[in-house]
Design a protein around this nucleic acid. Sequence first.
DNA 1: GTAGATGCAAAGTATTTGCGACAAG
DNA 2: CTTGTCGCAAATACTTTGCATCTAC
Lengths: 136, 136
Amino acid sequence: MSKNIEQKCLAKGVKLTEQRKIIAKIMSESNDHPDVDELYNRVSKIDLKISIATVYRTVKLFEESGILAKHEFKGGKARYEELNEGHHDHLIDVKSGEIIEFVDEEIEKLQEKIADKYGYRLVDHKLELYGVKKKP
Amino acid sequence: MSKNIEQKCLAKGVKLTEQRKIIAKIMSESNDHPDVDELYNRVSKIDLKISIATVYRTVKLFEESGILAKHEFKGGKARYEELNEGHHDHLIDVKSGEIIEFVDEEIEKLQEKIADKYGYRLVDHKLELYGVKKKP
DNA sequence: GTAGATGCAAAGTATTTGCGACAAG
DNA sequence: CTTGTCGCAAATACTTTGCATCTAC
């Protein structure tokens, strides 16, 4: 099994406060991609004194430490998810808002190839597909 | 040659005001992907009474009319470009901020295929590559 | 003439920050 | 202890909106 968020903090020298532990726990348990508001709501159920500023500061810190990934899908607020080994992209159901994670080796390779063609080394990328469910 | 923005407005029943004509002209002449602030600056050189609210309203209207495309690259503000026939994606130089447009048929097909695999019909997608220039 | 557009300033969102009190290492 | 974090409220950045006036059709 892969390292949990607390272990990652240790490894990165990120101080483990009570608030960060709670945020880490919630994010580990979340399989959706909550925005800061939603995360704040979930966290508040455990620690009702936590401030939204702390949540903002923490997700930013975790993102910079490679612990969380930040997504800016269509429509305003940033959303977060725990970052694990396997990279994946997102297919968003435009009707329901449901998010499907997928991995496609072929597309990853193709992206490298394109960057290379223009003389670039890929450092990051973003692929989002927006679709509607087909009738069966 | 393809329709210009004014012709598109006519076709869509969008009223052509003086301000919209100026914004249309500037966008047609811009080969970069200006954000609203930058667009406002450029437009202000021609019409110094125009309001930023009008610029916001106009880009939104143009986007809804399929005249402009809105991009939300990393780092806050939305950026716009004129929408023409050929679809393309973006490769962003993370050092300089330069944006390279590219077209890749193979990747387009692959995206359709992936959506299909999960039972979706693709209605939109976003592919952004972030890279650094390689040493030659 | 009339529906819709504009300019202005005020209001919204989402996010960040200064500061004194507080807690982790 | 000491450095970094927290909570709070105020500040910022981007974008939207109410309203009275004006303009394209």
